[in-house]
Amino acid sequence: MTTIGILDLQGDVSEHLEITKRTLDKMGVEARVSKVKTASEVAECDGIIISGGESTVIGKLMKETGVLDVIIKQNIPVMGTCAGMVLLSKESDYEQPLLGLIDIKVRRNGFGRQRASFEDEIEIFGGNYKGVFIRAPYALEAGEGVDVLAKLDDKIVAVAYKHHIATAFHPELTDDTKIHEYFIKEVLKCVE
């Protein structure tokens, strides 16, 4: 059975767990969704979701636990939101462990600190979407082959590369499942 893991090293991941389950039900896909912490748990997953939180802490814990190496070596599809976008990048404006799976250069807290959090309409996948930006990063640039999915004020806020997707905003804090649907389809392509 296809397994999607929600990386549970730091921060609250319950919203990702719930929306992933709802999305699978909506799509009629049978899959297991669970919180994962260890390298061995991650190794059993067909896809990993890295949620928001503190990217430096998550990155250090991923390195210490061996999770970072397992994701890279097994080429596991990853969806990264907010801090997850930073962790998927090849380069950040802050020295920290990164997966380097998407050729983007990211500015952490690009839209400001916690009190500067906001919601704004963006266009993604041909339609409007309510982006929830909390201490959000953005990509300064995207490398060759990276698909820029959405921008806000000329700042890159969503990208896809191969079977990975990264967003600066929090899709788990909305009722709109289109981002999770995209990721689940990518995971299923890799499982087939």
Rank of each mutant, 00 (worst) to 15 (best):
G110P: 00
H180E: 05
V33E: 10
L98W: 08
A136H: 08
T174Q: 05
A116M: 14
P171W: 07
R22A: 10
T20S: 11
A43E: 14
L149T: 00
T167L: 13
D25N: 13
E95W: 09
K178N: 02
T167G: 04
I48D: 02
G84T: 02
V78H: 02
K162G: 02
A31S: 06
M62A: 04
S55K: 10
N109D: 03
L87I: 09
A142L: 10
L87E: 09
F133W: 09
E54G: 05
L140V: 15
K189C: 11
A142G: 01
C190V: 15
K178R: 15
T56P: 01
E64A: 14
I124S: 03
R22T: 11
G84V: 06
A158L: 09
K105N: 03
F125A: 04
I49F: 02
K90D: 06
G53V: 13
K37H: 07
F118L: 10
N109C: 05
G126K: 10
S92H: 04
G53I: 13
P77I: 09
A39S: 11
T23D: 00
R135E: 09
L188D: 00
A83V: 15
I165G: 02
I134M: 04
T38G: 01
M85F: 14
E172R: 11
E91I: 04
C45R: 05
F111L: 10
Y161S: 07
E91A: 06
A136W: 13
V106F: 00
K37S: 14
G126S: 07
G59E: 10
V187G: 11
G143H: 05
E119C: 11
A168E: 03
S51T: 09
E141D: 12
V78F: 08
V29I: 15
P137H: 10
K26R: 12
T174Y: 08
T20H: 04
K185G: 05
V70W: 07
D46H: 13
T56Q: 01
E181A: 11
F169E: 00
L101V: 01
T2K: 11
S92I: 12
M62Q: 03
G126L: 08
I102F: 03
T177E: 09
P97K: 12
L24D: 00
I19P: 02
V106T: 05
V13S: 06
D153C: 03
D147S: 03
E186R: 15
F183H: 07
V36H: 01
G112W: 07
T56H: 00
K35M: 14
G127R: 15
A43T: 05
D8N: 13
E91V: 02
C45H: 06
D93W: 14
Y94T: 01
S51H: 04
E144N: 08
L140I: 15
V191N: 06
F125W: 05
G11P: 00
L24T: 04
L87R: 14
V57D: 01
I104M: 01
G131E: 05
I179M: 05
D147L: 01
S117P: 04
L101Y: 04
L9G: 01
H164G: 04
K151T: 15
G28Y: 09
V191W: 07
T56G: 00
L9Y: 02
T167V: 09
T20R: 05
V148M: 02
T3Y: 11
E172A: 05
L88G: 04
E64M: 14
A158E: 01
G28M: 09
A83W: 14
K151C: 12
Y129P: 00
E181D: 04
